[in-house]
Design a protein around this nucleic acid. Structure first.
Ligand SMILES: [Zn+2]
Ligand SMILES: [Zn+2]
Ligand SMILES: [Zn+2]
Ligand SMILES: [Zn+2]
Lengths: 141, 141
DNA sequence: GCAATTAATGTAATAACATTACATCACTTT
DNA sequence: AAAGTGATGTAATGTTATTACATTAATTGC
């Protein structure tokens, strides 16, 4: 394996909570779910998140101030530009990449001589499942 | 004029501060700059920002938790998809639109039957001016 | 094995960002 | 003038994130 590295206990706990969750969680929501495991302070969560963000195992959704586990197989890092579509109704997040979008951003950057370090691409709206269930209720419930 | 509507005093003050600033400002930074004008509470700023965001006269940069005045002529609303390139060195923000990117996102949404309500597109990196000044110092200072 | 170093953890306190609740004031409509 | 509406002022609180410092665990060099 390439990007895989041993997780510390706290990192493993945080990643597990995020992986189980079917919606983005705030750091404090993560903390609440880990009280039983002995976690008591926000910093324990934020430290774990920092590492997981570095390795790409977790993503932060700036528009929600919340975190999600990467939806990719993740024995390898998340490469290239990543975008997220966030359903306002069921809170599910759809992670995707699009090389055409990536190329277009790259072209803009070249044209403007802008050195890109990181990108935040988030779309908010209503997912297909929620649209087809007329009442907007969560189709998975 | 079309989208133009009278601003209240607080809205005008907040917009003026943001227009003058050459970098994004947090709500509390705006408040600090308006103490002399009599503003005392965060809510006074947030209320003004809410309106200005609605009309598109101001944008929120989620990745910075900060606000910028729209860089467009703004006797008309900011239409279509808007993206921001943010320089990590000089903090300047470059607002731009790209119909190709917009089309690509629209295509993704159609394919996935996702109903787009809003988008957050932010690029963080180093602007041309800061790249050409080797030390990374602010070229305008 | 054991001291020195480094990485991870625990805890408390605080900073930074944002909202809720409620009372008041100004303007319009009737 | 009374009622209704929108903006304002103020206080309190809620939410998100970081700083500071003491402790413990794992690693390295001897
Ligand atoms: Zn990912
Ligand atoms: Zn949905
Ligand atoms: Zn704009
Ligand atoms: Zn710059």
């Amino acid at each position: 394996m390439s990007g895989r590295r041993a997780l510390t206990r706290n990192q493993a706990l945080v990643l597990e909570v995020l992986t189980r969750a079917d919606e983005p969680l705030s750091a404090y929501a993560i903390l609440d779910r880990l009280r039983d495991e002995g976690l008591r302070a926000p910093l324990q969560v934020y430290r774990a998140l920092d590492k997981l963000l570095e390795t790409g195992e977790v993503h932060r959704l700036d528009s929600l101030k919340a975190f999600v586990a990467c939806s990719h197989p993740h024995d390898h890092p998340c490469t290239g530009l990543v975008a997220f579509a966030i359903c306002e109704s069921c809170a599910r997040v759809f992670e995707f990449s699009d090389s055409a979008i990536e190329a277009r951003f790259a072209a803009w950057a070249v044209e403007k001589a802008f050195l890109t370090k990181s990108t935040t691409l988030e779309i908010s709206g209503i997912c297909a499942a929620c649209r087809s269930s007329a009442d907007g209720s969560n189709p998975s419930d």
